[in-house]
Computed example of a mutant assay.
Amino acid sequence: MSNGPAGHVARSTTVRPQSETPETASSAASRTFLQTADGVRVEAVYERGHVVYDTLTSPSGQIAFVVAHGFTGDVDKPHVRRIARALRRYGAVVTFSFRGHGASGGRSTVGDREVLDLAAAVAWAREQGHARVVTVGFSMGGSVVLRHGALHARESAAVVSVSAPARWYYRGTAPMRRVHWLVTRPEGRLVSRYGLRTRIQNGGWDPVPVSPVEAVPRIAPTPLLIVHGDRDGYFPVDHPRMLAAAAGDHGELWLEGGMGHAEHAAADELLARIGHWALRRAG
């Protein structure tokens, strides 16, 4: 079940990633705009991993992580760059800005057509020579990697979903009620556009996309890791438990004590464990 061709590279330059440490700043990154299957230009950055990587080593032997950020994030946000730095210890990393976020074109559909953005980023990682691609998503991006894993069979060697919702239209917490105000109200969309650099489409989903919990069983046999904090202020623990139950034997649940929500709450130690898990399971 595919939404069409993943897309292609429209423009490429070589730049240094922003907000990096002196160690990582010494490595150049490739920055480009990708063309999605529905014609949206999505900004993306490719960085080689810190693992042994010389002229005799082919990228095909190294995992590539494709990181899908949360709502209102973008490729240059400090918390996205921190995730990239941590995962580069285990492989190459592709980060990108979802449609409507940062310098990418289009408008956010809050988890629906963003699957096409992720598909273009995965295809770009493969164009760099990586045979094994691991998708890692946070919050909204966590729901997108689940749906991508279901819709694009065999494109990912493993899927990691962090702090994702299990079902749509959830308003059971104050933070999610604020998100719904941003998305559904004209004044909320103005705040999002000018205050958060996130441009949201006007109008709801038509049709409503398959929910994350409905998508999860279709990911098998691709290895799946579900990560969630027991202090997540957006989605309580019934969400990851629903996802894990839907995954059955092919999924693994890490319920992290004391962890909050998404990238900001993902400690370096947790990111290291995710990197090790990916090396084991995506081989």
Rank of each mutant, 00 (worst) to 15 (best):
A153R: 13
A153N: 00
R154L: 00
R154E: 04
R154Y: 00
E155H: 04
S156G: 05
A157H: 08
A158P: 05
V159M: 01
V160Y: 09
V160L: 09
V162H: 10
S163T: 05
A164S: 12
P165V: 04
P165I: 04
R167W: 12
Y169K: 11
Y169L: 11
Y170W: 14
R171K: 14
T173F: 06
A174L: 15
P175N: 07
P175V: 08
M176W: 06
M176T: 08
R178L: 15
V179D: 00
V179A: 11
H180W: 15
H180I: 03
W181Y: 14
W181N: 01
W181T: 08
L182K: 10
L182E: 08
L182Y: 15
V183S: 03
V183L: 09
V183Q: 05
R185E: 11
R185A: 12
R185M: 09
E187Q: 15
E187R: 15
G188T: 07
R189N: 11
R189T: 11
V191C: 11
V191N: 06
V191F: 15
R193I: 08
Y194K: 12
Y194N: 11
Y194T: 15
G195E: 14
G195Y: 15
L196K: 13
R197Q: 13
R197V: 04
R197G: 05
R197I: 04
T198K: 13
R199L: 14
I200K: 10
Q201D: 08
Q201T: 08
Q201E: 13
N202P: 07
N202V: 15
G203A: 05
G203Y: 10
G204L: 05
G204H: 07
G204K: 04
W205P: 03
W205V: 03
P207I: 07
V208T: 11
P209E: 01
P209A: 00
P209Q: 01
P209R: 01
V210Q: 14
V210Y: 04
S211L: 01
P212R: 05
P212A: 02
V213H: 09
V213F: 03
V213E: 07
V213K: 02
E214I: 00
V216F: 01
V216D: 02
P217K: 04
P217A: 02
R218F: 01
R218D: 02
I219R: 01
I219E: 01
I219N: 00
A220P: 03
P221K: 06
P221W: 06
T222Y: 07
P223H: 12
P223G: 09
